[in-house]
Design a protein around this nucleic acid. Structure first.
Lengths: 134, 134
DNA sequence: GTTGAATCTCACATGGATGTGAGGTTCTAG
DNA sequence: CTAGAACCTCACATCCATGTGAGATTCAAC
């Protein structure tokens, strides 16, 4: 599988795939001419990397976790494992924050809908209130 | 309340507060000499902005939503309201993705713990498996 | 073979929030 | 009134994943 194929199958740009490799997050075999080749496993790997990126981890952080992801063995350094737990905890906190934000957006939507519905029944009732925080 | 105080109370840098104002997200009154002044409401406002930033919204997007946040009335433009709903939906999707990632990190942690515990009972058992995806 | 698409490396550009520093003005405590 | 802390504007720097373009090479199909 060539880099263009992998890009197509993962929805990640060719540029990004090269970047992941440069960061040590993804490896490839090379054809005699120097072109990269990937096996099926690469697809899952890239998808997983994307999820970690989406979770806010940097390349550096992902790299430091990699031992735990690849071979979750006793040989894995304590520090890698500690970082893994740390990132997990940060993610929990982050999700909690987002969930709160979601709730307040929902309240806001409900409120807006109400106001809009009211204005259908009773036109020219404008700007009836002010809400800075949700 | 001066900008330094607001920064201290919100944990946001002075630089960022000025930036928010520049983006039209936060306003202030000015002293005769040009120094910014804020009231208590500013604290909540900044906290809320931070939450929206943390949810991945850009300044531009927040700006476009602002009418809905500030005066959730019928007068609010349809497009602002539509964007609000759209951002809510994106946030839901994002949270779902993060939750999946969290689950796989949790599995990974459990797996690592198991391996590590096993190695205490049975030293020199190394690298017993490989897991690329969580 | 030949051609055209895909790939290679290198390196500079981008965007968005924030950092940083210069040079100057304003505020507040003593 | 004065010292120094805090503030002002302006503008350039930073980070990091990604975009983009140039110039050269390789691969696949005919």
């Amino acid at each position: 599988m060539r880099i263009g194929d992998l890009a197509a199958r993962t929805g990640v740009s060719v540029r990004s795939l090269r970047y992941y490799e440069e960061q040590g997050l993804l490896d490839s075999s090379r054809s005699p001419g120097g072109h990269r080749h990937y096996d099926e496993e690469g697809v899952d790997r890239v998808a997983y990397l994307q999820r970690l990126y989406a979770a806010g981890l940097s390349s550096q952080t992902i790299l430091s976790l990699l031992p735990c992801l690849e071979s979750p063995s006793a040989a894995t350094s304590d520090s890698a494992f500690d970082r893994l737990v740390e990132e997990r905890d940060k993610l929990v906190t982050h999700i909690a924050g987002l969930t709160r934000t979601l709730e307040s957006l929902d309240e806001l939507i409900t409120l807006n809908r109400k106001r809009r519905a009211a204005s259908v029944a009773d036109p020219d009732s404008g700007e009836p209130g002010r809400t800075t925080q949700g």
